[in-house]
Every structure is written in C-alpha cells, then in structure tokens.
Design a protein around this nucleic acid. Sequence first.
DNA 1: TCCTAACTTTGTACGTCGTACGGAATATTG
DNA 2: CAATATTCCGTACGACGTACAAAGTTAGGA
Lengths: 249, 249
Amino acid sequence: MTRDPDPSLRLLWRHAAPGQEPPRRRGPKQRLSVDEVVDAAIGLADAEGLDALTMRGLAGRLGLAPMTLYTYVPSRQDLVVLMVDQALGRTALPELPDDPRRRLELVARVQYDDCRAHPWLLDVAGVRAWLGPHAADRYEWQLSAVDGLGLGDIEMDQTVALLVGFAGSIARAEHRVRQAEQESGVTDREWWDANSPALGELMAGRSYPLAGRVGQVVGEAYQAAGSPARELEFGLARIVDGVLAHASG
Amino acid sequence: MTRDPDPSLRLLWRHAAPGQEPPRRRGPKQRLSVDEVVDAAIGLADAEGLDALTMRGLAGRLGLAPMTLYTYVPSRQDLVVLMVDQALGRTALPELPDDPRRRLELVARVQYDDCRAHPWLLDVAGVRAWLGPHAADRYEWQLSAVDGLGLGDIEMDQTVALLVGFAGSIARAEHRVRQAEQESGVTDREWWDANSPALGELMAGRSYPLAGRVGQVVGEAYQAAGSPARELEFGLARIVDGVLAHASG
DNA sequence: TCCTAACTTTGTACGTCGTACGGAATATTG
DNA sequence: CAATATTCCGTACGACGTACAAAGTTAGGA
C-alpha cells in the first residue's frame, strides 16, 4: 500500500546524491543540464512573470524544440517546483547576529528580498512537496534564528511563519502595484489622476471620513520612494516587539 | 490629456447610481443581471477555484452561450474584479467593540474568514482599480477599528495592512494544503508517510537538527484539527501586543 | 564488429482557454 | 413602419500544456 515516492523529489534533491549514482545513460547526451533549464526559467519568470513562462517560450530561449524540455522536466508544474528551490538557493543565508531583535528582523528581510527578486515565489511557494534542499536549509536557518528565545517548538514554527508571511504580504502588495502598472501601461499616479473625478462622482452620497483622509495622506506618501520598505519596517517592529515580549514574559 | 475613466469603475459602482440613470435600452432585455452572473462566478470559484472559472463553464452553468457573457462583462479580468467586491459585500461588517484589542483582532478575523470562504481572493485582491463600493466600505471600517488609538494616519494604514496581510497569509497557507490534497488526491499525512523514507535517504549527509525536531512536532500538531486557527491566534496576539504597545508608548 | 535497446530530439496533433467578429433576432425611437 | 441600438450566439483564431510516435544517437552485449 506504500506508494512510490514523488518523482519530483528525486529531481529536487538531484545534487545531494547519496550513492553517487553512475549517470551512464545509453542514448545521446543531453545538450543542457537541468540546472541550465531551471536557471533560464527563473530568468524568464523574473523578467516577465510566471504567466509569461511558457514551455514554448522557454524552449525558444534555450534553442530547443518545445517538447525537448520534457526530457529534462516532467511537466511545467515540476519545473516551477525546481525553480523555487533553485531560486532559494541563490541567496546565501547570512550569519545570524547575536541580538535577538536583529535575528528576527533578518528572517523577514531575507524573505522580503527574495520575494522582490523573484515575485513569482509569491504565487507558488509554501507547500510540502517543494521541500527541496535549499528550502530545507532555509527552514533550518529560520528556526535557528528564533532558537534560544525561550519559545516552544510549535511557537518557533509559528514565529517563523509570522515573520515570513508578513514579509511576503508586503512584497506581494508592492508587486501588485508594479504589475498593474506594467500591464496597464498606466502608473498608479496617472490612474488616480485620471479616475479620481469619476470616482468621486460615483461615491457621491456615501461618505468615507477616515478612508478619505487617510487615503489622501497615504497616497501622497506612496509617491515618495521606499514606501513599501517603510511599511515593512513598521510592521516588523510591531511583530518583533510582540514576539520578544512574549518570549521573555 | 485626461484619459477616459476606467470602464470597470462604472460596473463596480453600478448600484450606487448617482443620477438614477434611466436604463431604457434599445435592444432585447438581458435575460440575467450582472449580479446574477457575478454570483454564479463566485459560486463556481468558491467550489472549484479560480482556474476552474472559465467563461465557457460559467456560461454553461447559466444556460448561456459563452460569448453572451461578454454583454454583461467586458472580460474575464473585469469579471474577477466584480467578484471581489461582490464577495466582500456579502459579509456584513460587525459592529466594533470598545476594547482596542478586540477591535484589532476583529479586523484580522473578518479578513481571515472571508479568505477562507473565498480562497480565490488571495490570488487576486488588493489593487487600486478594484476599489469598489464594498472594498471602500471595508477600508473605512478597518480604519475605524484602528482609530482613536493614537496612531498617525500612515500608521493606521500600516496597521490595517499588517493585520489584513497576516490574516491572508494564514489563510493562504491553509488553502495551499487543501488545494494540494485536492489536486493530488493524496492527503498531507499520506504524502508524508509515503515520502518520508525516500526523503530521509535523500537528505542523508545533511543534518537538520532544529528542522527535524520542530518539523516532527509541528507535523503532529497539524494532524489535530484547527491548527491554522491556532496559528492565527498566536500571530495575532503578538501583532496586537506590538501595535498596542506602540500606540500607548 | 554489428545489433539492439535505451535515450534524446523533434513534428504533429488534440483539447483547452479567452475572445474578436459578424450575423440574426429583438426591442425602442423617430 | 423604418431605423437603430442591443442581445444573443456560432464560428474561428492564436495561445497554452502536453500525448504520441517517428527519427536520430549512443552504449552494451553478441
């Protein structure tokens, strides 16, 4: 009744060869390596988004016929799985500082940076079967950052989820704005300038005292550069405060 | 140089008719209303996911030819925009308690519940052009929940983003597990049982002291019902602690 | 040495999707 | 009644992922 292991697992862990399997294959050698295919896919997804990553497009970029990709990777889904782990592996996990506050912040910042570099991670990452070597390394690193604070095992996991989830949500909001601008060809500012009169008309009758005031201020603040970064700082400070208070309490 | 207002805005605010436009149209009457189309779409997306919401499928469910939908809605994208606002409008925003802690928690809980009821919101919500009447109502409500704590305007917005983002990240993690189980036909438990031996073999050589221990404990805790709910409680407690400490400090 | 089996590469093809387009039917306006 | 604006729908196009089988390439066994 035990099922065969998930085939994508072998691909994910292809470099951590335990028995050094002799790769003596019979047919012609592959022109490329799986790593090259995945790297090209990451490049494509970084540049144009996950939707723009098509098997035909990727094959074209690699000088292959579309179907040839399927000798490297069983399906597009599996390719994405490999992309996740390979992208995670690109960032060297920094050494953890001693200060607990800085440790927790670092977990969130690393996640935030990765999600900015590879926004498609947000559409995709975070499920069991994706447990590749780099994802495992990262989880270990994240746990070590929250280790020694006096938290229980489950709380450690929850704290990591809290930090990582928050960093992702900021990156996601940021990415959505960029994506909307890119797809519509209209910057956020331009859209509001063009639509706020009509919007005001439509909203006549209703009153939004707080949303009106706050939206105005926030909208202007968004024009200044680095607004998402400040959003990250604010939330991160609150979260770390809360976690540390709980850990020491 | 001022561009025409976004056409989807008129659709979004179609019920908040300012001038009570006479809907005397010339041709035959529409068999359905936009609301019915959007409701059916929501039902379909709730049941089978956003990917399963196809124009053909939706038309079939409504007894229409596929192309007929385009007389109700300009495109699938716009349909999704309408779905977001209409789904948000389905939950009556509860009255806010006096206790600041309960107010903040409520913001997160409402968001979490909605994201569980309509997981496709997570793939989609959160951009400018989607500012429909119910989204606006909700933002106003969220701001009023964090009003009066001594936060500045920008901090109020950031606090709402923090709560809502976190609630979404929990709902997203939860949904991913369910989705993976549904698509693969294998429950999380079964997958681990089937793959952990192979995984252990592949991971030979590397050691994951923390991840191994914590993963074990967390995995078992996940078997118990309500684990995501507990995750929500933990993070929420920390966040609210941090926000209130900051507001009163 | 040559044969055969395993493997890579590729062209063709199927079923799916969103939706552009044009024609027929229908209701309102003049 | 004629003109016109709208709804509804059938057909069709180009994109997608990928199943399948043929053709080309290499290594092992005779």
